[in-house]
Design a protein around this nucleic acid. Structure first.
Length: 169
DNA sequence: TCGAAGATTCTA
DNA sequence: AGAATCTTCGAA
């Protein structure tokens, strides 16, 4: 199965109260402090896995939460993992996309830069219009940061009301 | 050891 | 608008 990443959010460390790494390393967030380019996968709300791509050098916490994909290949299989949902809803959220691609904690800490069970490649797309907004689902702390990035107008991004979009630079 | 919160989703 | 559902973490 293949999907194009169309929405992400950035999370950091002690300067980011919304981050799992805000209070330092724990068993769960260990991948955020590890090698860059690896998977950080966690389970939340008793139901959902969320997939992150680690970004910083060893010892520095940082990750990008993959919030939405545009399905590209293997759509019928995604539908089997997420029955009875419209195509546009298949991967339009961090918990939705992990279910559609059958991503769980067994893939935690995978190296996403090399070909394997789960990996990311740069398609070299040019000219995509990237918009940014406040992050979704974060509380009062950290809600001021415009660290959500998405392809403007893409129908596969997650939908939720009340998002403050950055107006100008 | 216990309790509260959570980078969500689905249903009413 | 509210429930479901259970792991994780920090405090006691």
């Amino acid at each position: 199965m293949v999907g194009q990443i169309v929405e992400v959010e950035a999370y950091r460390g002690k300067d980011d109260p919304a981050s799992h790494a805000f209070r330092g390393p724990t068993p769960r967030n260990a991948p955020m402090f590890g090698e860059p380019g690896h998977a950080y996968i966690y389970f939340t709300y008793g139901n959902h896995y969320c997939l992150n791509f680690t970004t910083q050098r060893v010892g520095v916490p940082g990750a990008v939460l993959i919030r939405a994909l545009q399905p590209v290949e293997g759509i019928s299989l995604m539908k089997r993992f997420r029955p009875n949902v419209a195509d546009v809803e298949l991967t339009s959220g961090p918990g939705k996309l992990t279910k559609a691609l059958w991503i769980d904690k067994s893939l935690n800490e995978q190296d996403l830069t090399v070909r394997g069970p789960l990996f990311v490649v740069d398609r070299g797309d040019k000219g995509l219009e990237i918009a940014r907004s406040t992050r979704i689902g974060v509380g009062e702390h950290g809600g001021d940061k415009f660290w959500r990035f998405f392809v403007r107008g893409n129908p596969y991004i997650s939908r939720r009301g009340g998002i403050r979009e950055m107006t100008s630079s």
